[in-house]
């Protein structure tokens, strides 16, 4: 894999994440139209826009779930186009999902351990013979998983089933699962949907603390107070077009954004 990646390496590009005129067609319908922007290391970028503006589609393309119709996506100078999702994860891009996608019949700790696997597989034979090597690895997965869980603030019985958790705990578990992949870029798709105000503050503080630990974050969010509060820069999408890309204070005053998204009345 490494060789193909080296071939893809583009020396001149040293942006952290770079989208070059990225488009996506669904059977003739253009969901994302020539969107381009850069993300610098350590930034929190908010992507906002009305329903159906193409926010999740954009994330799905960065993440490798959807093939890019046109344009190129570079992550640390590596071209992501055409790479499968598990390889993009290995490069250091994690994400959480709008509908959480928690492994509901697995325990909390197992949910997190899945993300750690990639960095330490022991191979089929030791696993099937249950050798010491494999058991030691399992223990390591468990310890690392517990450490990540306490880092995001889940202090529950790790053997509890994930489906029994509250919405907030599931959100935190989703973040823990993503962190288990040791990402550099974290894509958060509506992490606070369905949470109460206090819970939203908990998650927002967690996101800020992740940035302090060196993560770069792209956040899709509907709640304006959150994006305005924690994002360094906002990108506004409408009908698949990027209509603005600026700091939150400027976005608040941008006429085009107000009419497209916030509603004319607010003026």
């Amino acid at each position: 894999m490494n060789e193909t990646l080296l071939v893809r390496q583009n020396g001149s590009n040293q942006q952290f994440l770079e989208l070059k005129e990225v488009s996506k067609d669904f059977a003739g319908l253009r969901a994302v139209n020539e969107v381009k922007f850069n993300v610098r290391k350590g930034e929190i970028i908010g992507i906002i826009g009305p329903n159906g503006a193409g926010k999740t589609t954009l994330i799905n393309m960065i993440n490798g779930f959807l093939p890019v119709t046109k344009g190129e996506i570079y992550f640390k100078g590596l071209k992501l186009n055409g790479l499968p999702a598990y390889q993009i994860c290995a490069l250091g891009v994690a994400r959480i999902f709008q509908n959480k996608q928690i492994f509901s019949n697995m325990s909390i700790i197992e949910n997190v351990m899945i993300g750690i696997h990639r960095r330490g597989q022991v191979g089929l034979l030791p696993v099937m013979l249950n050798l010491k090597q494999a058991r030691k690895k399992e223990k390591q997965y468990f310890e690392e998983g517990s450490e990540i869980l306490s880092r995001v603030g889940i202090n529950l019985n790790p053997y509890r089933l994930a489906k029994d958790l509250s919405a907030k705990e599931q959100t935190l578990l989703g973040i823990a699962r993503g962190l288990a992949c040791k990402p550099m870029l974290f894509l958060l798709d509506e992490p606070v949907a369905g949470l109460s105000i206090e819970e939203i503050y908990t998650v927002a503080n967690l996101i800020l603390s992740l940035r302090k630990q060196g993560l770069t974050i792209i956040l899709i969010e509907h709640r304006m107070e959150i994006v305005m509060g924690i994002c360094d820069r906002l990108i506004v999408l409408n009908f698949g077009q990027k209509i603005a890309d600026d700091i939150p204070e400027k976005i608040r005053e941008n006429k085009q954004v107000i009419s497209a998204y916030l509603g004319e009345k607010l003026i």
Binding site: S104, G115, H117
Partner: peptide, 19 residues
Amino acid sequence: RAVDLFTGGSEIASSALGV
């Protein structure tokens, strides 16, 4: 188990986690 849809798994979530 993480991949198996019928027992509460999710293919997309597991591939996003590097499986």
